[in-house]
Nucleic acid binder design. Structure first.
Lengths: 330, 330
DNA sequence: TAGTTTCATGAAAACCTTTTCATGAACCTG
DNA sequence: CAGGTTCATGAAAAGGTTTTCATGAAACTA
């Protein structure tokens, strides 16, 4: 079917060993044959068969990326960083989603067996430890934003707890005491951390958390909308609403406006993540900036580094800083 | 390193041929050996080496997806449909981006040579014909939202022109005659089609297009913001602004609000794509609904079908319908 | 019972590379 | 000039799977 190394050898009138040498080592081959081989390869449009290369070298040239979802600005930005960095390093990306299901994660993992040289896994509602056994015992794995206590596992996170605590402090400092909180998914590690930040800031300020003000959410715009509707229906209603991420803040914003209220004069509103849209809401959203793209880039850098040095993930856990972006919604 | 078919054969005390038969054909093998093999495979956690399988069968089990970008809600939604459909069909995805550069596209194409069984390409500012030669002569290729005249090339698009014409008609019907237009990227096929829709609706209504009212943009929120600032600075200013996509409409919306104007009473605003956020802007955005996720899903379905039937893309061009979603911004 | 068919089984080839090994030829060195 | 070294080259093995082919035993048919 395709053109193989034999074809090149035949046209160049040399052995396939020589062709391979020219195309790889570039040493110990006469000038004469080198040009013949290079010319034949170019004329035929020869590209080595990656399956054969991989079979021999057990390298694939691909990285596996496993995310909970692929839609939404957060993941899109993350992928942006991942993609750019991988492309620079000349790696191909194999991408799959788990929908936060451990079974799907395992299935994807199995599907990528021997198809990738390293794995990047984001699984906020599964522990890294529970996933890591399984077939991939001999390639580096880097976890991102995942619950993980084992220091021997490579992990990169950002400060979910600290970011939300800071933001809560900011609201308390500007006089709010009745602050609604729209949670993230029940099982998500990062959602729990964010809620913990909300609680800790209250405690530090000597305020007790009114459990009624914490309503469920799913990080989606729709769930943020619904959560805000619920909070606004309370009497007295909260003077501020903290959404667990920007998407739900955007949903909450539309609910607040539908109720005929103004942000921030009637209700202050905050998000988390600082997705690109957060700058362009009306009013611009005060939120916790997470370096999402850099997070993706860094994760791939670490993974590439592990592969290069042959390490099966023994890097210290890294936590990326977040910072408040106070705009006009508070 | 890993466990191979030989190991299974050794443990089960049969030949490797028998192991392969058990794991594939399932015919012509005695019950006795079958259970021994199945048991050994399970105990050892055997997974066939995909490189070896691919070398033999020249199947990879992967699909290549080439997009201009990966960030932004549009691509994220598209990927969502792609991912779900591929996962259902038990295909892995190899994803890469071209950044609208023909060179990058070619490089990615070359990188995917023999690594995928089919290709999905979205390249709005390149023609399908110019890309299609190159190494991939023997696998199916499906183009999406790409300029393509050759009927022998598989293509799936949506009605960029008709959608924008309809939306323009809607604005004209509600009394607008001075309608600003924020373009998309200069070389993008779909951006040109959308502009053509804007112009055609004007012509049909007997209006001449004021070229000054057409300002450049890049489909991004920032460029939409800048475009709107420019349009609002005109005297008299337009009574409506059409953005070429939702992202730039979101940017324009923030610019309009910064100028102290109201949507829609001072300025009407429209988008294109109907990304998830469009429902949650304030006010909710009138836009042209594009079935983005279905587009991704359909493209993969077509690709899988081509692969199954062994066709190298001879399907008739398909155009998916778009429809107006009139919300509160007009 | 002799001859034929069916069937389970293992050996070996093929897929395409890369790399090791063996073979000579050409080149030094004392 | 004899012995040793360097170097270009091709043959062959290895990597793990699937598939074809050959073998021989068991099962049928006349």
């Amino acid at each position: 079917m395709g053109v193989t190394i034999r074809d090149v050898a035949r046209i160049a009138k040399v052995s396939i060993s020589t062709v391979s040498r020219v195309l790889n080592d570039k040493c110990n081959v006469s000038e004469d044959k080198r040009v013949r081989v290079e010319r034949a390869a170019r004329d035929l449009g020869y590209i080595p068969n990656p399956a054969a290369q991989s079979l021999h070298s057990s390298r694939t040239g691909s990285l596996g990326v496993l995310l909970p979802f692929v839609s939404g600005e957060f993941y899109a930005e993350f992928l942006n960083g991942v993609d750019k960095t991988a492309q620079n390093g000349d790696w191909l990306l194999m991408i799959s989603t788990s929908h936060n299901s451990e079974d799907e994660l395992r299935a994807a993992l199995k599907g990528m067996y021997r198809r990738v040289d390293g794995l990047l896994i984001m699984a906020p509602n599964i522990t890294a430890e529970s996933v890591l056994m399984q077939p991939h015992d001999d390639i580096p794995v880097v976890f991102v934003n995942t619950r993980c206590e084992d220091e021997a596992i490579s992990l990169i996170t950002f400060d979910n707890h600290g970011g939300m605590r800071e933001m809560t402090r900011h609201l308390i400092a500007t006089g709010h005491t009745r602050i609604g909180f729209i949670r993230g998914p029940v099982l998500a590690f990062d959602a729990a951390e964010r809620e913990r930040g909300y609680r800790d800031a209250h405690r530090e300020a000597g305020l007790t958390v009114n459990e009624e003000l914490i309503v469920p959410g799913k990080y989606s715009q729709q769930s943020g909308h619904d959560g805000a509707v619920r909070l606004l229906g309370m009497d007295p209603r909260p003077t501020a609403i903290m959404a667990s991420n920007d998407d739900s803040a955007i949903g909450a914003l539309s609910a607040i406006r539908e109720a005929g209220l103004d942000v921030p004069s009637d209700v202050a509103l905050t998000g988390f993540d600082d997705v690109p849209s957060a700058r362009f809401t009306v009013p611009p959203l005060s939120t916790v900036h997470v370096p999402v793209r850099e997070l993706g880039a860094r994760s791939i850098e670490v993974l590439m580094e592990c592969i290069k040095t042959g390490q099966i993930s023994r890097l210290p856990h890294q936590t990326m800083d977040v910072e408040l972006r106070i705009r006009k919604s508070t």
